[in-house]
């Protein structure tokens, strides 16, 4: 079971979730974050999540201890030298990801898979300037990573077939459901789901139906678990707006992805959804 030695970079919500996914499958994980507090919060998160698993009878105390032991929080990137797979989950800035991968290229074996959990940046752009771009791919988890079964395996323009297969197999070993996508804006989910939000906003803007009506129709007529506006409030209207903007720009302003002014005004007003107490609905 120790065929993979995993490194995860960034101990925020996604990074910590990914580290937990790997450790639960028995793989050793080095979790890198320069911020001590973030690492500390991640440790608390592992502890509380696994404690719940014990309480629910899903795992034993022993398994919990073993899983926690598998995750080694680190602060220096050099310690990732012995990893066979590295997944980065740092903020969505191309320059940050590029410089990170350039450092890793110097530290790790040229065979080490360098995977990005990006949801919106081109894998080809991240890989472009590297010495061995054939080992760079996207491995896109969905939030919360330990719960959502899907991962998108994204093939960059230079990714080798061998590494595509290796990444796909890795995702399977993590007990996830992998799908393959080429390096196109929004990959699969963030692209195909755009009309759920964007068209709902357009329908609202054109005065066809109200927020509550649209949500009710999509749930009662469509069988969706949550309406498009409830869902935006949950995701964060700013996050949703940013995703639409990125996909729109990366498709060179294709009309299908045009963002909504209503959504922009919500962001400008700081009405971002549940997290601010007000979005399309009032949560105060």
């Amino acid at each position: 079971m120790n065929e993979y030695r995993v490194g995860v970079i960034g101990a925020g919500t996604m990074g910590a979730g990914i580290a937990l996914v790997c450790a639960r499958q028995g793989y050793s994980v080095k979790l890198l974050d320069a911020n001590e507090e973030t690492l500390e919060r991640a440790k608390q998160y592992f502890h509380s999540t696994l404690t719940k698993d014990v309480t629910k009878g899903k795992i034993s105390e022993e398994q919990k201890a073993k899983t926690i032991q598998l995750i080694n929080p680190i602060a220096r990137i050099e310690e990732l030298h012995d990893r066979t797979i590295i997944v980065e989950a740092v903020p969505e800035r191309l320059e940050l990801k590029k410089s990170l991968f350039q450092q890793l290229a110097k530290i790790c074996s040229e065979k080490t898979l360098l995977l990005s959990n990006t949801s919106s940046i081109s894998i080809t752009a991240i890989a472009g300037s590297l010495a061995h771009p054939e080992r760079v791919l996207g491995l896109h988890f969905f939030n919360p990573a330990p719960v959502m079964p899907l991962v998108e395996v994204i093939r960059g323009k230079q990714s080798s077939e061998e590494n595509v297969q290796a990444t796909y197999q890795f995702a399977k070993k993590l007990a996830k459901v992998p799908v393959m996508a080429t390096d196109t804006p929004g990959f699969i989910v963030n692209r195909v789901a755009r009309p759920y939000y964007n068209e709902a906003l357009r329908i609202l803007g054109d005065g066809v139906a109200e927020v509550e009506q649209i949500d009710r129709i999509m749930k009662r007529a469509g069988g969706f678990k949550m309406g498009p506006f409830e869902l935006q409030d949950m995701i964060g209207i700013d996050i949703n707006f940013a995703t639409t903007q990125t996909v729109f720009q990366d498709f060179f302003y294709e009309g299908r992805f045009k963002p909504s002014r209503i959504q922009e005004r919500m962001v400008q007003a700081g009405n971002l959804g549940r997290k601010t107490g007000e979005g399309f609905y009032d949560y105060s």
Binding site: V177, V189, K225
Partner: peptide, 10 residues
């Protein structure tokens, strides 16, 4: 698969 498992479409 992606739309069902990644964003809970029916």
């Amino acid at each position: 698969i992606a739309m069902q498992k990644g964003t809970n479409y029916p």
